[in-house]
């Protein structure tokens, strides 16, 4: 790939989605954009980039930006954060929200839906404690393609064997040919929306619990800090934030601090 093409693409991607693409990852452009070229009957990635540079075609830019996202996810990813949600964070926020009896949870990089559906299944299992509560789970992502899949809630045999206990599979999924579909009772607990974390987030409303896992790793430090600051504005002082296993707030933002003894969970500092 020509250096100026790489430069152009990495600048554009950083602007559009926050993605930092270092030179050693140039091959990712080739491998992920090849299918986009093909879909548009464009000969190769070089020609695709030339087309974007020439026409500034918005639809194509959006498509390319989406194609460059990494959407890997699985049910109950890393398991511990979900145990902590159930055992510590949920009782904590339920106590704080007892007066209004409503709880809002946000999955800020929902990908194919495994994370919000894992939370929905936990809440379903805890239904006895939640009688009379209004519970909302909002899943957002920058990729319309993953949102579509999340909405369908349709997973391959391989996907439902990653992290999902078999008892929950039989309880909350229906078999559709060789795929598995999340049951409407769980499906309807989650609402999906397109949202770019780089945009102003205020329109989303307030959230008592935020899962923002395995997305900040793709951003540079200032972007991470800015997103965390924006998220902090959406949360009440008792709100709780979950980050991915390779992510932290330390040295990135002073809005949050790790909760002792609960790895991956962060509380607001009030700063």
């Amino acid at each position: 790939m020509k250096p100026e093409d790489f430069q152009f693409m990495s600048t554009m991607l950083k602007q559009r989605s926050g993605l930092v693409l270092n030179e050693d990852k140039a091959y990712l452009l080739e491998s992920r954009l090849m299918p986009v070229s093909r879909a548009h009957n464009i000969k190769g990635v070089e020609e695709l980039i030339a087309e974007i540079r020439k026409t500034n075609n918005e639809a194509l830019i959006v498509e390319v930006t989406e194609a460059m996202t990494t959407n890997e996810s699985f049910f109950f990813r890393d398991i511990k954060p979900f145990d902590m949600f159930k055992d510590h964070v949920l009782p904590h926020v339920l106590e704080k929200c007892a007066a209004k009896k409503s709880l809002r949870i946000w999955c800020a990089a929902a990908s194919n839906g495994q994370e919000p559906y894992s939370l929905a299944m936990i809440l379903k299992e805890e239904a006895a404690k939640l009688a009379g509560w209004k519970i909302e789970i909002i899943g957002t992502d920058i990729s319309r393609q993953v949102l579509k899949k999340a909405e369908q809630g349709l997973y391959s045999q391989f996907e439902v064997q990653r992290g999902l206990p078999i008892t929950l599979l039989v309880k909350y999924f229906d078999k559709q040919d060789d795929q598995w579909q999340i049951k409407p009772e769980i499906r309807s607990m989650v609402q999906y929306k397109y949202y770019n974390l780089l945009d102003s987030l205020t329109a989303l409303g307030h959230f008592d619990v935020v899962f923002c896992r395995n997305v900040l790793i793709y951003f540079d430090q200032p972007t991470k800090g800015k997103v965390l600051e924006e998220i902090s504005k959406l949360m009440p002082d008792y709100g709780m934030l979950f980050l991915g296993g390779a992510e932290t707030v330390l040295g990135v933002s002073d809005k949050f601090a790790p909760v002792a003894g609960q790895r991956g969970v962060y509380a607001l500092t009030g700063k």
């Binding site: 078999i166 008892t167 039989v170």
Partner: peptide, 14 residues
Amino acid sequence: NDIQHIQEAIEAGA
């Protein structure tokens, strides 16, 4: 890989 088999297995103590 159908629900009936899985359920039978769980009931038998898998």
